[in-house]
Design a protein around this nucleic acid. Structure first.
Ligand SMILES: NC(=O)c1ccc[n+]([C@@H]2O[C@H](COP(=O)([O-])OP(=O)(O)OC[C@H]3O[C@@H](n4cnc5c(N)ncnc54)[C@H](O)[C@@H]3O)[C@@H](O)[C@H]2O)c1
Ligand SMILES: NC(=O)c1ccc[n+]([C@@H]2O[C@H](COP(=O)([O-])OP(=O)(O)OC[C@H]3O[C@@H](n4cnc5c(N)ncnc54)[C@H](O)[C@@H]3O)[C@@H](O)[C@H]2O)c1
Lengths: 208, 208
DNA sequence: CAAATATTGTGATTATATTCACAATATAAA
DNA sequence: TTTATATTGTGAATATAATCACAATATTTG
């Protein structure tokens, strides 16, 4: 299973497959064909079968894929633990929406620590979780063995926060600011910017 | 400017360029080279020049790009109006964070109508904006000439909301639910799911 | 049990995107 | 003014991803 040969595009789709499989399980489905999976996700059946083939053979000819088995295999492949600990920097507008979001728990992620600089927030509880001072971040992150950080602070403060995050030994970052993060080697970040997607929609409605 | 020949990957990057150019302008920069743009966005300079070349020649050899001029050109290319009207379905946790998000206004998008089914919310104001009943959506959307809808309702209700949105004449949708939208032709949607990105981070930290 | 069939898994092909390599040229320096 | 130089813009080459076409085969049917 030579990791380096697996297309990036494939890896990005694995989460989609898991998502749809969970939904099928919630509907008590036992088996699904690549064609049905493809239709419900807006992909092609070949694409799905090829994606899976990089990791092994999971299907049964003439029948399709055992939904539970395939989900279990994908979890193993992706190495998604059932208890991924997150910490959140910035307990504002967005931060609070994230704290109230049930989708994290459902998919094995939980926010275990919140950090802010606002003295009115430090020490208080948000959605049942204590807000710490940013100064305590390094200590708390190491103590709780947190591996992933979410950045939801104002754009201007992202550099200082990034430094703290890296010093805390975090290697994975989910970034909600508009800034592109300048990262040292070994650290990986993904950014979320839905205004970009709005602009894209705008572009297509304009050029079509 | 043959639209059909422009790579999709190029189009997706145009927003990034605009974002960085706005930042440079805020720092009073007049000129920028493709190399610097590339470094600050984690791309290559060739990629940026090639992207721009699909639309024309905007640079000056030996100097680089006039920041203001390039931004203006990109706005024209993307056809992003300065007053893109949005409507929001679902005034909950996430919906309220979006209502409080200043990034929309800054980039020419404004939420002009909110719709919900919760009787405790209908008629009330959120972030200074009135919440309407979903039943009024079609009328309000047409009257206000809104072109883009944001879906932030619970996953289970997405199908009924989608129907209403389409009946209202909306062609562009930004979807925050976990569901993949089954769309008729002529309608375009982009989905936002950051749990997927967390899983991706998890995958890479696991396989590296 | 044999034949028919649906569906997977995959090598070959095509399409899309990135990178290379360098000509063109505007600017700055001599 | 002439020369040197930095940077753009772009065809050609390479890399990556999607699709095609079909062999393999488990299951179902007769
Ligand atoms: N609200 C949204 O829907 C939304 C959407 C997308 C992206 N964003 C981005 O997320 C970020 C936060 O947006 P918001 O709307 O939540 O802003 P906000 O002002 O409501 O919240 C920011 C929070 O960060 C805290 N903070 C400030 N400096 C800090 C620091 N150095 N360390 C830790 N905490 C610090 C503030 O005290 C505040 O609690 C921004 O970059 C914004 O562009 C927001
Ligand atoms: N909170 C987050 O950070 C977050 C992040 C990503 C995605 N999401 C997704 O966004 C959606 C909403 O999440 P949330 O946390 O805001 O949930 P929420 O329960 O806080 O809010 C949902 C809102 O939608 C309203 N609603 C219910 N049925 C409706 C209908 N048929 N038409 C219009 N409105 C209706 C509810 O009254 C409520 O106000 C979910 O699909 C969730 O998965 C949320």
């Amino acid at each position: 299973m030579p990791y380096s040969k697996i297309p990036n595009a494939t890896i990005k789709r694995l989460s989609l497959y898991r998502k749809q499989l969970r939904r099928l399980i919630s509907e008590d489905r036992e088996v699904v064909q690549s064609q049905e999976l493809a239709d419900s996700l807006g992909l092609t059946s070949t694409q799905i079968r090829k994606d899976l083939s990089y990791f092994g053979k999971f299907g049964c000819r003439k029948k399709g894929y055992d939904v539970n088995l395939l989900l279990a295999n994908l979890r193993k492949i992706m190495g998604v633990a059932t208890d991924n600990k997150l910490c959140l920097f910035g307990c504002g507008n967005l931060g609070n929406a994230l704290l109230g979001y049930k989708g994290f728990e459902q998919r094995g992620f939980s926010i275990e620590a919140i950090f802010d600089t606002d003295l009115n927030k430090i020490g208080k509880f948000f959605h049942g979780k204590r807000c710490y001072s940013v100064n305590q971040a390094k200590e708390v992150i190491k103590r709780k063995n947190i591996k992933i950080a979410i950045i939801a602070v104002p754009d201007e403060t992202v550099d200082e926060i990034l430094e703290i995050i890296i010093l805390s030994g975090i290697k994975s970052i989910l970034n909600f600011t508009q800034r592109h993060l300048q990262l040292p080697g070994g650290i990986m970040a993904r950014s979320v910017d839905f205004t970009d997607k709005l602009e894209l929609l705008s572009y297509f409605s304009h050029t079509k």
